[in-house]
């Protein structure tokens, strides 16, 4: 059973993946996200940190046994268990398919759309409109897949659900207002099922779905 | 042992990952990349294809048993074997770490730098200069990691080497001229070791390292 420390800044959806995986596996995970254990922008620039994590990026994991990992998907995989990872080559390949899908198809348009509403990036009308169209395509693919399924792979929660749900957190909290998500009921049903699992709730707390699409925060 | 068909356009580095994995595992893989088996832009728009692969993207894999996968990393994982995937939770997490590293840290700057030299995209001086700096950082991380290692994870070739090497193919063929790659000898040694493995050579043929950095193809 893994035991170690996860370095991150607070409220990092990439770190949530690893924290939720640890809730399922029972791995003993300490989260270092605030002083004095960890200060983003300082601790991750120290020689000691860079020696273990040469890019200085977070989330970063250091096992009590000294085993170090960077890249959030790898950390969540390691802190999970065989059920979460997919117990057969077909299931583990399908888990990896949705993990890749989250990073390559969801994160770029979700960030383009949401970041300006959080005031952390300039608003660009054309880019936002394109991002909305890309998000609709993603929701369409997921809605079709979830038409006959409760979870993305097999009959139980896996790293596929944890990864895709965490990559959509900001979307559902900030901009997917009821009228926008109305054509994709299977996805909202699936998302609400996931975030209400006790292992998700312990990490995420109460996840309130967006009532009114946030506009960019000038 | 998996057996099936890989749909792609010719010379697709993302498809090479799956093809090389199959060389190691012995999976029976048919590649459909030209007419009449597959025409990119036509076959992947037919209802039959979209029914199995809703995004219509390639590479896409269909097993003789009907099992379908999209996302190139998932296909390579499925067509590989336990040695390539990493036989322990630590090794499989490290493999996933480098697979994620390739997609998040290598592919974006490599595409930005190389696409204009292939005529795929407009040249943008500022973006290209930034991409060169990002590639230097990537090469630095890899060079340090490979200082004491022959391969990225453990003592043998894994999906980490296959994925990272394939994501760097265009870089080494098009733009990493001797003076640019001189500060990173461990990476070039590792790359040449990989592409000279018989399983890589069967798929890639002879890989000639760039002699003169290609400029954009106006």
């Amino acid at each position: 059973m893994a035991a170690g420390t996860l370095y991150t800044y607070p409220e990092n959806w990439r770190a949530f993946k690893a924290q939720i995986a640890a809730q399922y596996s029972g791995a003993a995970l300490k989260v270092a996200s605030s002083a004095p254990a960890f200060t983003f922008g300082q601790t991750n620039r120290t020689p000691a940190f860079l020696n273990n994590f040469p890019q200085g990026k977070v989330p970063a994991y250091q096992g009590d046994d000294g085993f170090c990992l960077f890249e959030s998907n790898a950390i969540a995989h390691y802190l999970g268990n065989d059920v979460l990872r997919g117990a057969t080559p077909q299931a583990s390949a399908q888990v990896l398919q949705w993990v890749s899908f989250a990073d390559s198809e969801i994160v770029p348009p979700a960030s383009t759309w949401v970041f300006p509403t959080l005031g952390i990036m300039q608003f660009n009308k054309q880019a936002t409109e394109q991002a909305k169209e890309d998000v609709k395509k993603v929701l369409g693919v997921l809605n079709q897949h979830l038409n006959t399924r409760t979870f993305l792979v097999g009959e139980r929660v896996s790293l596929a659900d944890i990864t895709v749900a965490c990559s959509m957190l900001w979307l559902y909290k900030q901009v997917l207002e009821p009228s926008f998500r109305q054509p994709y009921p299977n996805v909202t049903r699936w998302f609400v099922t996931c975030v209400n699992q006790p292992q998700f709730k312990t990490v995420l707390g109460e996840v309130k779905l967006c009532e009114k699409m946030a506009q960019f925060d000038a | 042992m998996a057996a099936g068909t890989l749909y792609t356009y010719p010379e697709n580095w993302r498809a090479f990952k799956a093809q090389i994995a199959a060389q190691y595992s012995g999976a029976a893989l048919k590649v459909a990349s030209s007419a009449p088996a597959f025409t990119f832009g036509q076959t992947n728009r037919t209802p039959a294809f979209l029914n199995n692969f809703p995004q219509g993207k390639v590479p896409a894999y269909q097993g003789d048993d009907g099992f379908c996968l999209f996302e190139s990393n998932a296909i390579a994982h499925y067509l590989g074997n336990d040695v390539l995937r990493g036989a322990t939770p630590q090794a499989s997490a490290q493999v996933l770490q480098w697979v994620s590293f390739a997609d998040s840290e290598i592919v974006p700057p490599a595409s930005t730098w190389v696409f204009p030299t292939l005529g795929i995209m407009q040249f943008n001086k500022q973006a290209t200069e930034q991409a060169k700096e990002d590639v230097k950082k990537v090469l630095g991380v890899l060079n340090q990691h490979l200082n004491t290692r022959t391969f990225l994870v453990g003592e043998r070739v894994s999906l980490a080497d296959i994925t990272v090497a394939c994501s760097m193919l265009w870089l080494y063929k098009q733009v990493l001229e001797p003076s640019f790659r001189q500060p990173y000898p461990n990476v070039t040694r590792w790359f040449v070791t990989c592409v000279n493995q018989p399983q890589f050579k069967t798929v890639l043929g002879e890989v000639k390292l760039c002699e003169k950095m290609a400029q954009f193809d106006a």
Binding site: - | G41, P108, G119, I120
Partner: peptide, 30 residues
Amino acid sequence: AVNFPGQEKIWFEKSRYDEAERRFFERVAG
């Protein structure tokens, strides 16, 4: 803390690159 996600490296241009790559290889295949 709200600012931290802004320091993440996101490939905002990805759909533009995917589109360009698709068009290029469709031309080649065509």
